[in-house]
Computed example of a mutant assay.
Amino acid sequence: MHVSTDVLNGTAKAARRRHPAAAWLAENGALVALVVLVVGLSLLSGDFLTVTNLLNVGVQAAVTAILAFGVTFVIITGGIDLSVGSVAALSAIVLAWLSTDSGLPWPLAVLVALAVGLVCGLANAALIAYGKLPPFIATLAMLGIARGLALVISQGSPIALPDAVTHLGDTIGDYLPIPVLVMIAMGLITALILGRTYSGRAIYAIGGNEEAARLSGIKVDRQKLITYGLSGLFAAIAGIVLASRLASAQPQAASGYELDAIAAVVIGGASLSGGKGRAFGTFVGALILAVLRNGLNLLSVSAFWQQVVIGVVIALAVLSDTLRRRATT
């Protein structure tokens, strides 16, 4: 028997009214997990809650969070973007190469680097929307293309950045790391796009039911161009921030970061089936990964075991999403 979406939504709303505490916990489970994690690590290590260490956690989370904000748009539509780490590296390499080897003024080089990220995202969208490739295959291909181009342009070696760009990795005064400020700015932009724009509403509609969105008049292919374009643009920004911290653009930089970005989005409460996700949840997910890695380092846990722990956390997040979706169907 077919049950309409309105009926299901009405049932879910009625359940939330009956059990407000459980509903709040379901929506903010990642935030609760972050608080528990912070309290636990502060009890286990006296160095965790120091100002220096907390600022370090913020800086560590910045690049992953910026990447994850871009990936959030894609995952809400029910897609995936495996190319963001490679696009970040390529954008940084282009910036460094243009501003040093080619002598282009660094502001123009930054704009070109951002354009490179945008073009990579649009290429992903074109392959998916018009070439009808699955997002996994299209973005996997871009992962290889972008990483290969980064290696070709740099000839496999790091390229120094102009001093003006490396200042992006500095701290204003003693307590305001610029990467953290960039992360917060990108988070606010993500929240604004998702919550206050037509494209944001369209992204949720496409993730909920792509065919229904198309029939309701949403230009799905155009919105996918916007969605993947934003993901590529955010990846370029993350690549520039990462390069500024390293004081050079490295062709192998951000390798594997795409997995951390996807993990942050899922841990933050987004659904891999689409239609669900928030900028704040993604921010919390990125913080959980950074806090977890930082705390395990303070506790002198082997890097090998750290990968095991993070893998378990990701598996639990996906399992939680699966159980939550079953409970509402």
Rank of each mutant, 00 (worst) to 15 (best):
N9M: 13
R16D: 15
A21K: 14
W24D: 02
E27T: 08
A30V: 12
L31E: 02
L31G: 13
V32A: 14
A33G: 09
V38S: 05
V39H: 01
G40N: 01
L43K: 00
S45Y: 05
G46S: 01
D47H: 12
F48H: 05
T52M: 09
G58M: 02
Q60G: 12
Q60S: 15
I66Y: 04
I66S: 06
L67S: 01
F69T: 03
G70T: 03
G70W: 13
T72S: 04
I75F: 00
I76W: 02
G78H: 10
G79C: 07
G79K: 04
I80R: 10
D81M: 11
L82Y: 07
S83E: 06
V84T: 13
S86F: 10
A88V: 07
L95T: 02
S99V: 02
S99D: 00
S99I: 00
T100H: 07
P105I: 11
P105R: 05
W106R: 01
L114E: 07
V116P: 01
G117C: 04
G117K: 10
C120F: 15
G121D: 08
A123Q: 11
A126K: 06
I128D: 11
G131S: 13
L133I: 08
P135Q: 02
I137V: 15
L140W: 04
A141Q: 03
G144V: 04
G148C: 03
L149W: 06
I153H: 11
S154C: 08
L161N: 06
P162R: 10
V165I: 13
H167K: 14
D170R: 07
T171W: 01
G173S: 08
D174A: 14
D174E: 15
D174P: 01
L176E: 05
P177W: 02
V180E: 03
L181P: 07
I184Q: 05
L192A: 15
I193A: 12
R196D: 08
S199P: 07
I203G: 02
I206K: 07
G207Q: 06
G208N: 11
N209L: 01
N209K: 00
E210H: 13
E211M: 06
R214P: 00
R214H: 14
L215S: 03
S216W: 11
G217N: 06
K219S: 14
K219E: 14
Q223R: 15
K224C: 06
S231V: 03
S231W: 01
A238M: 03
V241K: 05
S244L: 09
S244N: 02
R245K: 12
Q250T: 10
P251N: 00
A254S: 15
Y257G: 05
E258C: 02
D260L: 14
I262V: 13
A263L: 05
V266R: 01
G268K: 01
L272F: 11
S273Y: 11
R278I: 07
A279C: 13
A279K: 08
A286M: 02
V291F: 15
L292T: 15
L292W: 04
G295M: 08
L298C: 09
W305T: 01
Q306G: 15
V309T: 10
G311E: 06
T322R: 12
L323H: 06
R324T: 09
R325E: 14
A327K: 12
T328Y: 12
